[in-house]
Amino acid sequence: MSFLFYAGGVVALISTLLVILQTNVVHALIYLVLSLLAVAVVFFSLGAPFVALLEAIVYAGAIMVLFLFVVMMLNLGQTTREQEKAWLPTKVWFVPVVLATILLIGLLSSFPVNSIEVAEVGVMEVSGLLFGPYVLAVELASFLLLAGLISAYHLAKSR
């Protein structure tokens, strides 16, 4: 089962890298869906099937579809590839990559060395917490979603 973890991890990294390198928005979105699905696999291998499912359904499903809609509304895609290429000369990558690398090294050097005894933490425990001690947080999350809904509606409305 640890194979699943590493395979998912490698796929996630590669597809994410491709997301940020892509010039075609639609392609990038497909890679992002792939990346998210791979992370869902990683979740599953870590013994969190509920979260893995949510990742696949909500993230890779709902949110990405939202992106797709917008991309279609803005009519981005094939036609803007040339423009994207012009926006991405090689020198632009230099500073961010260096900074991100330093950050990564900084993070890695602070990791504890430890092993995870993977045990499944199922839906029952999660929902027990959600409707027990975290019920207020769930309510607040619903408020946040409602606010997001209303403001998105208001902002995207054409005058």
Binding site: F5, A12, L13, I20, L104, L108, F111, I116, E117, V118
Partner: peptide, 19 residues
């Protein structure tokens, strides 16, 4: 049951974050 090194999970997360 199987084990995965803790830091490998964190490594994956950090790499994704950096990307």
């Amino acid at each position: 049951m199987y084990t995965i090194p803790f830091e490998h999970g964190l490594l994956l997360a950090s790499a994704l974050f950096a990307l």
